[in-house]
């Protein structure tokens, strides 16, 4: 329990940064389904690591505190002797952990509310398709059991039947694949560790591409899917004013079209494997740190009796009086 913990914490942060850096190109170039799973599971693992390391710092700080040690029957003295990490760093870890706790509660509340809103609305519709008669052109998947597809009548009127089939197949793919859970997972992970934030845009692109691929397989025409994206963008784009946040999301459609029209890039195994390794190596370090902490406290429990002799039977008041006769 020493400087190696700090080195691993630093390495984990570097891993998170590398993961975030590579995430967009995996979302663009790896097979979409593989990219989505790697991004969502990898983000969750890295988020767990990001909590585990501050947690260890907090626990060994707490373990040095006499009243807590007495309650848990371990030797605070031994914990102090074994932990060489400066107290300031331990305190910093504690502050980080507290901040993460707050962020997690906030993000979990936000995601859960968004999902339950969607589920409630989905329950109120009769058919597989909910049409909005007086709305600006839009189409989206409303997750639920079963999920529904929501489309504005204006958009349906602007599209040909084969384009409608593409749009419906795309949205149905979101619902069948439970893509909202992948997105929620990355959203939660990036709330716990802001370094992971770029993965949010990446999981968005990966799930859109995933749905595009499913739609393309269903209609058997990749160029049709690409044209439909372009057509829907034009129909919707005229109506939706360009706001700064949307400008950031904008190139997504161009990337999807590019991915549909280019020749297949192969599985991009190296790229995806790098992403997986970036998530798994810090996870190994975190597991090691947790087990070292466990060992430390077991040792401290064994040392409890020896370093702080307790009179037997423990009769505190009279014992004190008879200690120095």
């Amino acid at each position: 329990m020493s400087a190696s913990l700090l080195i691993w914490s630093g390495a984990a942060l570097v891993s998170c940064a590398g993961f975030a850096l590579l995430a967009p190109s995996v979302a663009r170039r790896a097979p979409a389904c593989l990219a989505a799973w790697t991004l969502s599971l990898g983000s969750l693992v890295l988020a767990a690591v990001s909590v585990a390391l501050p947690l260890v710092l907090f626990v060994v700080l707490l373990g040095q505190w006499e009243p807590v040690a007495a309650m848990g029957h371990w030797s605070a003295h031994l914990v102090r002797a074994r932990v060489t990490v400066p107290a300031a760093i331990l305190a910093l870890g504690t502050v980080v952990l507290a901040g993460q706790g707050l962020l997690l509660v906030q993000a979990a509340w936000r995601e859960a509310r968004a999902l339950s809103d969607a589920w409630r609305l989905a329950r109120r519709s009769m058919g597989a398709l909910v049409v909005l008669p007086d709305e600006r052109p839009t189409v989206f998947a409303l997750p639920g059991w079963p999920g529904r597809i929501v489309a504005a009548q204006q958009l349906l009127q602007a599209l040909s039947t084969s384009e409608i089939r593409v749009v419906l197949a795309h949205e149905q793919a979101h619902l069948d694949g439970r893509h909202e859970l992948h997105r929620a997972a990355v959203s939660l992970a990036s709330a716990l560790n802001p370094v992971l934030r770029p993965a949010r845009g990446a999981i968005g692109l990966a799930t859109e591409r995933w749905a595009d691929e499913r739609a393309a397989r269903l209609v058997g025409d990749r160029a049709l899917v690409a044209r439909t994206i372009g057509h829907v963008a034009r129909v919707c784009g005229r109506e939706i004013p360009a706001a700064p946040t949307m400008a950031a999301a904008g190139p997504g459609e161009a990337l999807r079209v590019e991915a549909l029209l280019r020749p297949p890039l192969g599985r991009r195994t190296l790229l995806t494997a790098t992403l997986a390794v970036l998530a798994l190596v810090p996870a190994g370090a975190a597991v090691r740190a947790l087990s070292q902490t466990n060992d430390l406290f077991q040792r401290a429990e064994r040392a409890y009796g020896t370093s702080a002799p307790v009179p037997f039977p423990p009769t505190p008041i009279s014992a004190k009086a008879s200690e120095h006769p």
């Binding site: 936000r110 995601e111 968004a114 999902l115 969607a118 839009t138 189409v139 989206f140 998947a141 409303l142 997750p143 749009v167 795309h170 949205e171 979101h174 893509h179 909202e180 997105r183 929620a184 990355v186 959203s187 949010r200 999981i203 968005g204 799930t207 859109e208 749905a211 994206i229 372009g230 829907v232 963008a233 034009r234 919707c236 784009g237 939706i240 360009a242 706001a243 946040t245 949307m246 400008a247 999301a249 904008g250 190139p251 997504g252 459609e253 161009a254 079209v257």
Partner: peptide, 21 residues
Amino acid sequence: DRTGVLSQFVAGLDRRALEAL
């Protein structure tokens, strides 16, 4: 902007993205 639970078919394009498209 806040969460990604719902995914729109197109998120609204800026001029540059439309041009690329």
